[in-house]
Design a protein around this nucleic acid. Structure first.
Lengths: 129, 129
DNA sequence: ATGTTCAGTATACAAAAGTATACTGATATT
DNA sequence: AATATCAGTATACTTTTGTATACTGAACAT
């Protein structure tokens, strides 16, 4: 497991390797923005078609959905499969990497929940600003 | 440990609890944007003063640094301490939550690195588009 | 009195991200 | 022939995010 702290947490530690920075900004690009996580969540739930993603992702416009799906496809997070039936069927599916991002989401949820309890505890009992 | 997959990864699983969504968006807000992670990284390295953060965070303007530090302070990621010496000394320090976010960063780096190797493997050997 | 450092603020602007609304084209249904 | 569905695209915005450049004010140092 990589350990950012080892590189960046010490007063005069080694520089953070560039591959770490690249990996980090990749990840940030994949999850940043208003719609990426809602779309990934829908795909994880097994929603795969454009129309269904439109309906299940509250208030997103087709323009944004189209744009986001393209970005996710370019970054190998989703695959687009065309089935030449009529009416044409197009399915978006998470790649293995795409599925694995659930681990990142988990660690974000963990931090967020602990952070909330810590902030609330401080606000209740602390020296309050 | 929370498990997003359990809630969102199954075809007809339970709905994702709202507290998870809140925690997740909290985390996203803390790390999103051009400067949040560079600033947090500098703070983890032990850079604590406005001027030093300006110098060590490449190309950031005082306006942005000031704005970001305020946001981080409001969200209890950093504490601002004023030492009434002359010249006045002001230190920004990560809270415990702020330090813990290194765990999230680690999982982001892990995903990013694995993702890169998978994409490269596919591109080298796969059916390439 | 003039200049220097620290810790910022003020104003204006540019670029990126997101929204609103309407439309397209292929195929099928009535 | 008119209508509907799927999978989007087109155009024109508005909002948010980030940049550039200059300035402020307190406390010293020369």
């Amino acid at each position: 497991m990589s350990d950012f702290k080892d590189f960046i947490g010490s007063e005069k530690g080694p520089q953070c390797p560039r591959v770490y920075i690249l990996a980090l900004t990749d990840t940030l690009n994949v999850i940043s923005g208003k719609w990426k996580l809602p779309i990934i969540a829908a795909l994880l739930r097994g929603v795969n078609r454009f129309k269904d993603l439109l309906d299940s992702t509250e208030k997103i416009t087709p323009r944004m959905l189209s744009k986001e799906l393209k970005e996710l496809e370019i970054n190998s997070i989703v695959e687009r499969k065309v089935y030449n039936q009529t009416p044409v069927l197009i399915e978006y599916r998470l790649t293995n990497s795409g599925k694995d991002i659930a681990n990142v989401i988990d660690s974000m949820i963990d931090w967020g929940m602990i952070h909330r309890t810590q902030v609330i505890t401080k606000t209740d009992a602390g020296e309050g600003s």
